[in-house]
C-alpha cells in the first residue's frame, strides 16, 4: 500500500537538529531508566564496575604484570563500556522489543539524527561511571593522581565514552537485522576486556589482537589516560585522544550507515517488528 500524500516537514536547521539529538536522546534515556529505582543504577553501573576494577587490580598485583596505575586508570576508562555498549545497543533494540520501532521510523525527521542522539546520554552516563570508579578505586587502593591531570583525564574518559556509545549504537543497528542483540553486546563487552589492552599490556598480546584493539573504542582513551595520570602533559596524550576520537567518528558513521541500510531492508521485506 502506498502512503497517502503528506506535507513534507520543514528542513531542519542546525539548532533544530541539535535539539532533536539532545532532547530526543534524553527522553529516550529516561524512558529506559525513569521507572527503576536508584538501587539498580548504583548496583549495576557503579558497584559492579568497581569490583571489576578491583578484580583486575588485585590479579595484576598478584601476577606483577603492571603497576596499580596501569590497572586502575585503564579499567576506570573501561567501565564506561557497560553503560555505553549496552545502552547504545538497547537504544535501538528496545524500540523493537517494546514495539515502538515503527513509530520512530515513521517520524518525518532524520532517523540518523534521532538515533545518534540516543547515544549521547549513554556517553554521559559512561563518563559519570568512569569518574566515580576512578575516584573510589584510587581512594581504596591508594593511587595518587596529580591535580593537573584531572581535566585531561576527564577529557580522555569523555572521548572514550562517546566512542564507546557509538560503538554500542553500531551493535544496536545490527539488532535491526539479527534477532538477539544481547548475545552481540555481551560478547562485545567481554572482548573489550581482552582486546583494548586495558588488562594485558599490549606487548604481551599477539600482534593481531593489538591490531584489532586499535580499531576498538577505549584502547586509545585508556592509553591517553594512563599517560596523563603518570604526569605527562596533555600534549603527550593528544595523539591517542585524536585516535580515539577518530574511532568514535568511524563508529558513528558506521552506525548511521547500518541503520539506514537495515531500515530500508526492513521496510522492503516487511520484517520491521519480527523478533
Amino acid at each position: 500500500m502506498k502512503p497517502g500524500p503528506t506535507t513534507p516537514p520543514p528542513p531542519l536547521t542546525g539548532l533544530k537538529t541539535l535539539r532533536l539529538m539532545t532532547v530526543g536522546g534524553v527522553i529516550a534515556y529516561r524512558a529506559l531508566f525513569n521507572w527503576t529505582r536508584p538501587s539498580i543504577f548504583i548496583g549495576t553501573l557503579l558497584v559492579g564496575p568497581l569490583f571489576q576494577l578491583l578484580f583486575f587490580a588485585y590479579l595484576g598485583r598478584q601476577l606483577q604484570v603492571a603497576d596499580d596505575r596501569f590497572y586502575i586508570v585503564g579499567n576506570a576508562v573501561l567501565t564506561a563500556t557497560l553503560a555505553c555498549v549496552f545502552g547504545g545497543t538497547l537504544a535501538v533494540g528496545n524500540e523493537r522489543r517494546y514495539g515502538t520501532l515503527g513509530h520512530v521510523l515513521l517520524s518525518p525527521r532524520s532517523r540518523t539524527v534521532v538515533f545518534l542522539g540516543r547515544a549521547l546520554p549513554y556517553a554521559g552516563n559512561g563518563l559519570f561511571i568512569a569518574v566515580v570508579t576512578l575516584g573510589v578505586s584510587s581512594a581504596l587502593l591508594g593511587l595518587r593522581i596529580p591535580a593537573a591531570a584531572v581535566p585531561g583525564l576527564l577529557l580522555s574518559m569523555a572521548v572514550g565514552s562517546l566512542a564507546c556509545a557509538f560503538f554500542g549504537l553500531t551493535l544496536g543497528a545490527l539488532g535491526l537485522r539479527f534477532r538477539d542483540v544481547w548475545v552481540i553486546s555481551n560478547v562485545a563487552v567481554a572482548l573489550l576486556l581482552l582486546l583494548t589492552g586495558v588488562n594485558v599490556p599490549s606487548g604481551s598480546l599477539p600482534g593481531w589482537m593489538v591490531t584489532v584493539g586499535q580499531f576498538l573504542p577505549i584502547t586509545h582513551a585508556a592509553e591517553a589516560a594512563r599517560r596523563l595520570a603518570g604526569g605527562s602533559g596533555l600534549s603527550a596524550a593528544a595523539p591517542e585522544l585524536g585516535r580515539e576520537a577518530l574511532v568514535g567518528v568511524g563508529y558513528a558513521i558506521l552506525a548511521a550507515l547500518l541503520l539506514k541500510i537495515f531500515e530500508t531492508e526492513s521496510r522492503r521485506t516487511a520484517s520491521l517488528d519480527t523478533l
Binding site: L63, V65, L193, L194, V200, S204, L205
Partner: peptide, 14 residues
C-alpha cells in the same frame, strides 16, 4: 573462553 584467553595472557605476562 574470552576470559580464559585473558587469564592465559595475563599469567604468561606474569
Amino acid at each position: 573462553i574470552v576470559q580464559a584467553t585473558l587469564a592465559v595472557y595475563l599469567f604468561r605476562a606474569g
